[in-house]
Simulated scan of single mutants.
Amino acid sequence: MSEIVLQMKQKIVIAPQVINLYVKDIARVTATNACIVGEVKVYTLTEEDGNICVISALDVIKEISIAIPNSNINLIGADHIIVEKTNEKKSTNVFFVGLAWLVLFFGAGLTIMNFHEDVSMKEVHQNLHFLLSGEENDNPYWLQIPYSLGVGLGMIIFFNHLFKKKITEEPSPLDVEMFLYQENVDKYLIKKQKNSSKDSN
């Protein structure tokens, strides 16, 4: 009896033209005949699967047991794997990118302006100038200009990005939120697959 250890991957991304999935595609294999195990076909994608499908580890074990009888299969790691098909890349529409950039730019600018108006930031700067210099000034630029630059610099440091370049190796708050969102989506897909399997049984 051959010993086979499978470590299922949590998620894989495949090209749109891929139809058949093999053990080597969805799991790491440790066995004396690992090459043979890796070539076992475990799933055939259909149009009904769409761009995302979930494969149970039990189905993988079943296919291996049929292809390689008298094998002792030990599973470690995830009990489901998410298979996602990548869409073919389309050319970027410069018009829509520019339009989105303008909307975001002016929207963010108006948001900051409205916030400062609500908290009376101009009056705060005027009062601060009076406290420090003893003179009244309607436009204390020596406070307003560094403050404005500081707001932009603070946003860059907070999000840890300057265009496409990261300032440090630490993930930004946006990176963490995107990771948590993707993790919740994956959990939902697996939960949905488990519920559909129970209903079919």
Rank of each mutant, 00 (worst) to 15 (best):
F96C: 10
V97N: 09
T92A: 07
V119S: 02
V94A: 06
L75V: 09
E84R: 05
E117K: 14
N74S: 10
I76P: 07
P69W: 04
D79K: 12
E117Q: 12
A108N: 03
T92W: 05
V94W: 00
S71I: 09
V94S: 02
V83T: 02
N93A: 07
N87P: 02
K89V: 04
T111G: 14
W101Y: 10
E88S: 11
S91Q: 14
M113C: 07
L104K: 13
G109M: 05
L99V: 08
K90I: 13
S120A: 13
V119Y: 03
L104T: 04
N87M: 08
S71Y: 09
V94G: 00
S120N: 14
H116Y: 10
V119L: 11
I82H: 02
F96S: 13
T86W: 01
L104A: 12
N72L: 06
N93W: 01
G109K: 02
L75C: 12
N87R: 07
E117P: 00
F105A: 01
V97H: 01
K85R: 15
N93D: 14
N87C: 06
N74C: 09
D79G: 10
D118K: 15
I82A: 11
T92D: 06
G98I: 00
L102P: 01
T86K: 14
V83S: 04
M113Q: 10
F106I: 15
E88D: 11
G107F: 05
F95L: 03
I73P: 06
I73F: 08
S71E: 05
K85I: 06
M113E: 09
E84Q: 11
H116F: 13
G98W: 04
S120E: 12
F115K: 06
I76Y: 10
E88A: 13
A100L: 06
S91A: 15
E84G: 04
F105N: 02
V103G: 00
V103C: 04
E84K: 07
F96M: 11
P69H: 04
G77V: 04
L110Y: 08
F96K: 12
D118P: 00
I81W: 02
E84P: 02
F106C: 11
S71N: 13
L110H: 09
A108F: 01
L99G: 01
H80I: 05
I112F: 13
F115H: 08
V97E: 10
T92V: 14
S120M: 11
G77C: 03
N70E: 04
F95W: 00
K89Q: 06
L104F: 12
G77W: 03
L99S: 13
E88M: 12
I81G: 00
L104C: 13
L110V: 15
N114W: 07
T92M: 08
N87T: 10
L99T: 12
A78T: 00
S120Q: 13
G98N: 14
N93V: 09
G77E: 05
N87E: 14
S91P: 06
D79Y: 09
S71K: 07
A100G: 00
I82D: 06
N70L: 03
S71W: 08
S120K: 14
S120R: 14
I82S: 06
F115Y: 10
F106K: 14
K90G: 08
F115G: 02
K90E: 08
K89R: 07
N87D: 05
N74F: 08
V97M: 07
A78K: 00
T92E: 10
L99F: 12
T111A: 14
L102K: 09
S71C: 15
F106P: 03
I112Y: 07
F115D: 03
F105S: 01
N93C: 10
D118E: 15
D118W: 15
